[in-house]
Amino acid sequence: ETGKELVLALYDYQEKSPREVTMKKGDILTLLNSTNKDWWKVEVNDRQGFVPAAYVKKL
């Protein structure tokens, strides 16, 4: 879809709370919100949640 910003997972991340999502290094995720410098909201496999901003980079 146009207008979607994507990020690349630089590291594996295992969710530690229900508000977070698990990702694997190399995953491409849809970026939903990056206003917080530490935690970015992403969508992966129809799930939305937060990942550490340092673990992903914008494509």
Rank of each mutant, 00 (worst) to 15 (best):
T35W: 09
R19D: 14
R19P: 06
V56T: 04
E15Y: 05
T35Q: 12
K25V: 07
K41V: 14
N45G: 15
E20Y: 05
F50Y: 15
S17Y: 07
G3D: 12
K4C: 12
D12N: 08
L59N: 04
L59C: 11
N36L: 08
V51L: 02
Q14T: 14
N45M: 12
A53T: 06
K24C: 09
Y11I: 10
I28G: 01
N45K: 12
V56K: 01
V21A: 06
E43S: 10
W39D: 01
L32T: 05
R47M: 07
L10Q: 04
D38P: 03
V42I: 08
K57Q: 14
G26F: 05
G3R: 13
I28D: 00
E43H: 07
R47P: 00
K58N: 07
L32W: 05
E15W: 05
A54L: 11
E5I: 15
D27P: 00
N45L: 12
E1N: 15
P18M: 10
L59A: 05
Q14F: 15
P18C: 09
D38H: 15
G3W: 13
Q48A: 12
D27C: 07
Q48W: 08
E20V: 04
L10V: 07
K58A: 08
Q14V: 15
V44N: 15
S34D: 15
D12P: 05
E20R: 04
M23F: 11
T30E: 11
T2I: 14
D38F: 15
L29E: 00
M23V: 09
L8V: 15
E15T: 07
V42H: 00
L32Q: 03
K16T: 13
K41Y: 15
A53F: 03
V7F: 07
T22D: 04
L10R: 04
V56Q: 00
V51Y: 00
T22I: 03
A53W: 01
V42Y: 01
E5G: 11
E20Q: 11
T2N: 15
V21C: 09
Q14W: 11
P18K: 09
Q48M: 11
L29G: 11
V44G: 12
D46V: 06
L31D: 00
W40R: 01
V56P: 00
A9E: 00
E43M: 11
L31C: 07
D38R: 12
V56E: 01
W39C: 06
L31K: 00
Q48S: 11
T35S: 13
Q48H: 08
L32C: 07
L32I: 15
K25M: 08
M23S: 00
G26C: 08
V21P: 01
Y11R: 15
D12G: 06
F50K: 02
L59F: 09
K16Q: 14
K16W: 04
R47H: 08
M23I: 15
